[in-house]
Design a protein around this nucleic acid. Structure first.
Lengths: 153, 153
DNA sequence: AGCAATAGTTCCTTCAGGGAACCCTGGGCG
DNA sequence: CGCCCAGGGTTCCCTGAAGGAACTATTGCT
């Protein structure tokens, strides 16, 4: 949780950040997505403090982005898995990674590449207009008040 | 800047967060995008502390996401504007907002709607495969090591 | 009994965010 | 000329979150 209440803002960006914008949360989701689902593996892989990892996992489960489920009864052991809500957040992570590949990878090239199982090809997340299907650029988009808009404060 | 060095990680998500993942940075970019370009307006609109706003703006300019430019010589006054790198980051913000609209807006509906100037219609950012053009879901994507991959540490 | 693995919790220190006050430059105006 | 105002920050202190290491608890293996 940030110091400031992002969740109450009339902005879907702020509200998304309230769910998964704290430091580490996106990287935790990334690791769970690619198959690191257990506490110790996450902690070692990320180099995050156990305390913060514990807090984040609890929060992400509360928010319905992850689910905690047993993979063994004796001894009781748990792992974390993405929900539908969480998978759709990972879609956004792919768009974030595409920006990072383009602007931060340098000449070494991207650290990871994505392969679309449906077409079998290496892919990159492209942001497109839901209406006409053309690439959607912020520069050519107008923002208008929506039904859920309310003044700040 | 976070406590941990996200910039050095072999992950384009972490590197993107190192540029614009600190608290407030995405909201600052959003405001600049929709036309709030001056220090005082940003500070009032966001309710952010002037100190943090000052730090973030400096950092975002250093990172080449924003540019600081004069809009008056006498008296000297400045405003902030998106660079190409910054506009492309706003493309990602549209994808983040789409997730927030879907999962956090509730029945009040989205606080803001986007209109694509090219087609004139209300739009939503969709994430699609750069190869086949179909919607791209994290669930159906495989992650492989890329040329810039290196082990952590 | 002793050791290891998993999944946390607790404690302490340090550093970044919040908030308010202050500073500096250059008009506008009486 | 002297005063006030707006814009764009910087400085200060306080609190709360991140880092890190140590500790706990349960079960299984040998």
């Amino acid at each position: 949780m940030q110091r400031t209440d992002f969740a109450g803002m009339a902005c879907s960006i702020a509200r998304t950040l309230a769910v998964a914008g704290e430091p580490w949360s996106p990287l935790i989701l990334r690791d769970v997505w690619v198959g690191t689902t257990r506490f110790d593996d996450l902690q070692r892989g990320l180099g995050i403090s156990r305390k913060v990892l514990s807090e984040r996992l609890k929060w992400l489960v509360e928010q319905g982005v992850l689910q905690r489920r047993p993979y063994s009864e004796h001894p009781p052991r748990h792992e974390y898995a993405l929900t539908q809500k969480g998978y759709e957040l990972c879609d956004v992570l792919m768009a974030i990674a595409a920006w990072g590949d383009r602007w931060t990878a340098g000449k070494a090239g991207p650290p990871a590449i994505l392969r679309h199982r449906a077409c079998g090809e290496v892919t990159r997340a492209e942001i497109r207009c839901s209406h006409c299907g053309d690439p959607l650029h912020a520069r050519y988009v107008d923002v208008e008040a929506g039904p859920g808009w309310h003044p700040p404060g």
